[in-house]
């Protein structure tokens, strides 16, 4: 729920009381639960914000990309609310919402578009690794993306090979603290290619062979820390180097990052250091807005409403494979 850029309420189904009901099933995967959850969640948001349904000016939902079953529930529910209230509906591109999430901040949380400037934006999560040039608000162009695995997926899968439980990415981040990132030289795929694409599948395979040839490293706590730090350095190195290279090439003075992997401390630290050195401003999405959330969807929808953009038809279909262009 957003009013004049201020986030009045934001609720995630995987949090708090709803969480206990799942009994081990990862909530975001439980798409069948969406149907059961969306109404209690919508009521919860209205109550927290102290807003009555009739006071809403517009309704928004993610239209894509994503899992069809999950998208369908949210889209149709939002369209039905908009129809009943006779208000405009906005079907939002999930990645476009991520692009502007670094511009939401402060306490209380609000959109800070007065601070916006043209940027190169890295969206990096379990499912996506995208580099986007945002030339102006509402005007963006996809520069590149992963050709195989996403960066977050690489974190989780290499962590699994190292023997960490799923999702291993955050654990790998913790174990890497105090490890030597230069201990083992892992490949930096596509680092020197003259494009803005990423590839992480080969790194996963490299870790697999490394552990086959050096099984003792996985068992020794100190060397395991070195291994985690080295794997993490390889992923972060490629992400940061290619992001900054694109920023320099396009002449922007600002870099932004969002998506779940933006919570990774090595990535945050390295982006901060390199941007400072290059004289670039850095806007990182706040940790609570890095992962998927409805606040960024509502913020973008309100901007579209204010700019006078055409609403999405109430019978518009979901777009599970909607690509950012």
């Amino acid at each position: 729920m957003v009013r004049d850029g201020r986030v009045l309420a934001a609720v995630v189904a995987s949090q708090g009381t709803l969480h206990a009901e799942y009994g081990g099933v990862v909530p975001e995967l439980a798409t069948r639960e969406h149907l059961r959850n969306w109404l209690p969640l919508a009521r919860c948001v209205l109550a927290q914000a102290g807003v009555l349904p009739g006071e809403l000016a517009a309704v928004a939902a993610t239209r894509g990309p994503g899992l069809p079953n999950a998208l369908m529930v949210g889209l149709r529910a939002a369209q039905a609310i908009a129809f009943a209230l006779e208000r405009p509906f906005f079907g939002i591109h999930h990645h476009e919402a991520h692009l502007y999430s670094p511009w939401i901040g402060g306490e209380p949380l609000r959109a800070q578009f007065e601070q916006f400037e043209p940027n190169v934006s890295l969206i990096v999560s379990g499912g996506h690794t995208l580099l986007v040039h945002v030339a102006a608000e509402g005007q963006h162009r996809l520069l590149g993306g992963t050709v195989d695995d996403a960066a977050g997926e690489c974190f989780d899968k290499t962590a699994k090979l190292i023997g960490l439980p799923y999702p291993g990415g955050p654990l790998l981040d913790q174990l890497a603290v105090g490890g030597d990132p230069a201990a083992f030289p892992f490949p930096r795929p596509l680092l020197n290619e003259p494009n803005d694409d990423f590839s992480f599948s080969g790194l996963k395979t490299a870790v697999r062979y490394f552990l086959r040839d050096h099984p003792e490293v996985g068992r020794d706590p100190a060397r395991r820390r070195d291994l985690c730090a080295s794997v993490q350095a390889a992923i972060v190195d490629v992400l940061v180097t290619k992001t900054l290279r694109a920023a320099r090439r396009l002449g922007v003075r600002c870099v932004t990052a969002s998506g779940g992997v933006t919570c990774n401390r090595a990535l945050r630290g390295r982006l901060a250091a390199e941007c400072a050195e290059a004289g670039l401003r850095l806007r990182l999405a706040e940790p609570r807005l890095c992962t998927d959330n409805a606040a960024m969807v509502a913020v973008l929808a309100e901007r579209l409403l204010r700019r006078g953009c055409a609403p999405t038809p109430l019978d518009a279909e979901m777009l599970p494979s909607w690509e950012l262009t």
């Binding site: 995967l29 990309p65 999560s125 499912g127 996506h128 993306g145 695995d149 997926e153």
Partner: peptide
Amino acid sequence: HSPSFALVHEY
């Protein structure tokens, strides 16, 4: 690209 996270990609 890998649908490990998204579960399904349709082409």
